[in-house]
Simulated scan of single mutants.
Amino acid sequence: MKFELYVENSFEEHSPSQAVNITDQTWENWFRQWLEILHPDLPPAPSYEVGLRLTDDKQIQALNAQYRQQDRPTDVLAFAALEGDLPQSEEMLASLPLYLGDIIVSIDTGKRQAQQQGHSLSTELAWLTAHGLLHLLGWDHPDEDSLLQMLKQQVILLKAVDISIDTEWQ
């Protein structure tokens, strides 16, 4: 499966958030493995494309206010490209990467949550990014049962990239 990932670090240069130690290659490997697992949820395409933006609380708060009318920071936002109709041309689908959407993660919130959960920032960022990817593919959690299913799927995705996470709800 072909895959393209665009990673953007948009936090301030002198921010303590710079401590993220996940290379672009690691992100690409994680997404590739996750998309292999999630292949049944993917529309057919020759390749896939995802944008990942690592940012700070200030920037994610502005996006959260603009797009969700919630003027506060959040941990992850996902902007799915597949919510509308797919292009009709089979020729187009056969030749272009299918853009799944963008995932925006706040490193500042991720740091706080990692400390609260007692695991590393890298683990928290992987957890949040996997959650965002599931949203790009149409997963949602409007109720407790669907949230539990989504969280279980996140655990599966993290295990696939050798990240274990303690969960009280399992």
Rank of each mutant, 00 (worst) to 15 (best):
D85V: 03
P40C: 09
M1T: 09
A78L: 02
I60H: 09
K159P: 00
A78K: 01
H135D: 00
E83C: 00
D162K: 04
Q116N: 11
Q61A: 15
L148I: 03
P40K: 05
A126C: 10
A80H: 04
Q33A: 07
A65W: 01
L96Q: 14
E36D: 09
R32L: 07
Y67E: 10
G118V: 01
S47W: 02
L158P: 08
S106I: 03
D56I: 01
I165A: 03
S89Q: 10
M92S: 07
M92T: 11
P16F: 06
G138I: 03
D41L: 11
Q149E: 15
P46G: 09
T23W: 02
H119V: 03
A114Q: 04
I107Q: 07
E12P: 01
G132T: 09
I163T: 12
D108Q: 05
Q116R: 11
F79H: 11
M150C: 12
K159L: 08
Q88E: 15
A81S: 14
D140G: 12
E13V: 09
T23F: 02
I60G: 07
D57I: 00
L98C: 12
A130G: 11
Q116A: 14
G101I: 03
T74F: 07
P44Q: 13
Y99G: 01
Q113H: 13
A130W: 08
F3P: 00
S47M: 04
A114K: 08
W127F: 14
L157K: 02
E28R: 08
E124M: 15
E28F: 08
Y6N: 14
L5F: 04
P87I: 00
T23H: 03
F11Q: 09
D56Q: 11
E124T: 07
Q66Y: 01
S164T: 14
G110R: 03
Y6M: 06
E4N: 13
V7I: 15
H39Y: 10
T129I: 05
P73N: 04
D85G: 04
N64Q: 10
A114H: 04
D108F: 00
Q25S: 13
D85H: 07
L128E: 01
E8F: 05
H119R: 05
L77H: 03
H119G: 04
V20Q: 07
L151E: 15
H39G: 00
P16S: 08
W139A: 15
Q149H: 05
D102I: 04
T74N: 10
G110M: 02
Y99C: 01
D85F: 02
V76Y: 04
T123D: 12
S15D: 15
Y67D: 09
L82H: 02
D75H: 12
L82P: 01
Q33L: 06
E4R: 11
T123Q: 13
R72Q: 15
K152F: 01
I163Q: 06
K2C: 01
S122C: 04
K58N: 13
E168G: 12
W30K: 02
P16R: 05
